[in-house]
């Protein structure tokens, strides 16, 4: 860099080249950074059904996977260290959820249906989230263990009823 700038007058043509080369190197570096990071951190969305159907394949998989399902309230257990609960299958396509009456309806149907496919989620040493309750949607990232339980590192919950358009119950007056 020192030699280049030491020249008293840089010719426009030569000046352009060095900027183009420098820019190309930088761009390549950034693209490399993004592409490799995507490769290392991609988490696939999987439904409970997919997970059950290809269980052995997912047990062997090294990268974390992400499943989503409806929380069954009765199964929530927490002893201060281990949090466990079951989730049941819900469809993953937004269109299908809309067709079946919206997320709240889909979650309710899933939890109340007796033979829905389910998987047990196990989370260790994490607080019990405030939103973890019956018929919440859980989005869980982690790995499927050989015991068939899903060992989660990250737990995200959505309660559609919370944001649903609610109407007052008490209507006196």
């Amino acid at each position: 860099m020192a030699e280049l700038t030491a020249q008293p007058v840089a010719r426009p043509a030569g000046g352009r080249t060095k900027f183009l080369v420098g820019g190309a190197i930088l761009l390549a570096a950034v693209i490399y950074l993004i592409v490799t990071s995507i490769g290392a951190n991609q988490q696939y969305f999987i439904t409970v059904h997919d997970l059950k159907a290809r269980e052995t394949e997912y047990i062997a998989r090294k990268s974390p996977i992400r499943i989503s399902g409806a929380v069954v309230g009765d199964t929530i257990k927490y002893d201060g260290h281990t949090l466990s609960f079951d989730i049941v299958h819900i469809p993953d396509s937004a269109a299908q959820i809309t067709d079946e009456g919206g997320l709240a309806e889909v979650l309710h149907t899933a939890v109340t249906s007796p033979n829905a496919e389910r998987v047990t989620i196990v989370v260790v040493d994490q607080p019990k989230p405030d939103l973890l309750k019956n018929e919440a949607q859980a989005i869980v990232t982690g790995k499927l263990g050989e015991d068939g339980d899903f060992h989660a590192d990250e737990l995200l919950l959505k309660c559609p009823t919370r944001y649903q358009e609610q109407v007052p119950d008490q209507t006196g007056g």
Partner: peptide, 18 residues
Amino acid sequence: VEKSSLGADYFLRTTGPM
């Protein structure tokens, strides 16, 4: 292509050096 998301580590790895 399967639907996937990128974890928090993705953001750290890409934006950290920059």
